[in-house]
Design a protein around this nucleic acid. Sequence first.
DNA 1: GTGAAAGCGCTAACAT
DNA 2: ATGTTAGCGCTTTCAC
Lengths: 332, 332
Amino acid sequence: MAKTVEQIANDLNLSVTTVRLVLNGKAEQYRISAKTQARINQHVELYGYTLNHSARSLKLNKTDTLGLIVPNISNVFFATLAEKLELRCRRSGYQLTISCTYNDVDYENKLVRALIDRNVDGLFIVPSTLENQQHHLRQVKKPLVLLDRDFKYTDNALVESHNVEGGQRLTENLLAAGASPVWFLVGDTALPSIRDRLEGYLNALKKHGIEHRDWVLSVNENTPEGGKLIMNQLLDAHGAPDAFIASSLPMLEGAIEALRDRLGEVPQQINIGTFDEHPMLGFLANNVWSMQQDENAWAEQAFDIMQNALDGHPLKETIKVKMKLIKRTRRA
Amino acid sequence: MAKTVEQIANDLNLSVTTVRLVLNGKAEQYRISAKTQARINQHVELYGYTLNHSARSLKLNKTDTLGLIVPNISNVFFATLAEKLELRCRRSGYQLTISCTYNDVDYENKLVRALIDRNVDGLFIVPSTLENQQHHLRQVKKPLVLLDRDFKYTDNALVESHNVEGGQRLTENLLAAGASPVWFLVGDTALPSIRDRLEGYLNALKKHGIEHRDWVLSVNENTPEGGKLIMNQLLDAHGAPDAFIASSLPMLEGAIEALRDRLGEVPQQINIGTFDEHPMLGFLANNVWSMQQDENAWAEQAFDIMQNALDGHPLKETIKVKMKLIKRTRRA
DNA sequence: GTGAAAGCGCTAACAT
DNA sequence: ATGTTAGCGCTTTCAC
């Protein structure tokens, strides 16, 4: 397949420079004779030419590769984000390499090192903890775009959803539906995004003159197990709820499981709110409001910032992407 | 951060060879003096050393990188497979780069070219069509492991689930539950995996002395839209079913949507079978049987084959991984 | 026990 | 308009 520039040059008794110029479309600019161009093009047509990225990388000290580090991609949100980002990167000639941390703090640091060692040109990271974030900021001397979690203590560029506003809007819609209380099942307030959603929830309550901070039930893991635990507590203390919001899909999964385990079914009149959209939310017979994150917008914004940084214009902005409410109403 | 081998050698007035030998743990083998070793180790301790992968790749004509091409990763099965495969590859020092085709036939070919151009050492591919498969077999001169879809016309190594057996077992379990007919909603029989599931279904019927081929309803896209269309047809012709099997999760999503749209709810007594497992299947109030694919086993097997091929022992086997049945029973 | 040097294929600076 | 060359950092072969 291959054929190197030098081989082509030799075959045609030309210099590498000449061949390179036409290969790179600079033929006109350097006024390579039409005849030479034709000879080269024909040769390439015949034997092909594929640029050797390793050689190019060695020379230019860049790989035209970007890294993405997320907790996992079996989570639809991160999976979709990865898809959009990969597409956006490829559109500009970058290969994106995706890696998952599985929320393992040490493994995350190792991943960063592995990608830096492979000389990626820049890195998109969803850090697991503040410590991880600080570690990365120290280690990574390349363009870095933080995603999803604003742990503060840095002015590095960051893209996230507008969780406060989203949380508020979601809550207001559930409040408007009438059922009360609207419990808020919150997993892991160590995560800024979760904290912001909670803040939005409280804002909405306050706006409606409600001050029931005891409607908030929290646990310290953002997982199905956490959701199950907390829903069981709720059932113990108050029986079946009329309405609740889960701070994320994994929490919701656990909460629903608890309801089925304890009540034998998920009472259809419960109004449910959740963050992150998924087609299977339609499997619930209930009214379901889901606050969707806009992965496409994230990808565009994050890549823009990266592009600028690669061009030597590092930006320090925090972008908050608007969320979108999806309503599923059950038939009366 | 960096420091090259040559820099270290210069700093210590040694030759690159000596430095390399201790860096690569061949110190004992070549009996480098303890003193020299100490000096080198100390220097590295102090200033660090990171191997330049680009230079190494250029010299050795390999990148220690493998490629994975799947339809998309917003599909949990492929996402999980990608996760497991990435872990397995990293464990052996390979970086995995994941790309999605979105079922775009041309884009898929471009992706293969892009990865080959970047000189990946080998490729795992879920081909979209037979034509794609043949294209890849022609283009890819490197180790290639096909995944998920046995389009035949090749003896290339391939890893897939044992869909026939899985389909049969799933069907038998639904038949045993008593409800009848057990409809089979099948999307896109152009996909070998789907065809095998159907075959398993028919085997089960036959085994039970049932010959109702008209229980099979098919459409030509394996999507929510396909599932919706087909369930609507079923509702038109026979009313609400007592039991059905969906050939994949996307199909099930559409089928459930149709039920809700038409009946206002998903009748709880319907027994549902599906392929691929997902926690949110628990959102259905129904009995749900799901036939789960074992991504971990796929990853292990696929990597093994790849490893062998990279070591110069190309294998031509087709591996069929056993599936696992998950049962969700509703409370009476 | 340690050293020297060629060469992987590309780019960019400098010739003509 | 086209040619020459150095060098990116590594590996490998050969030499003392």
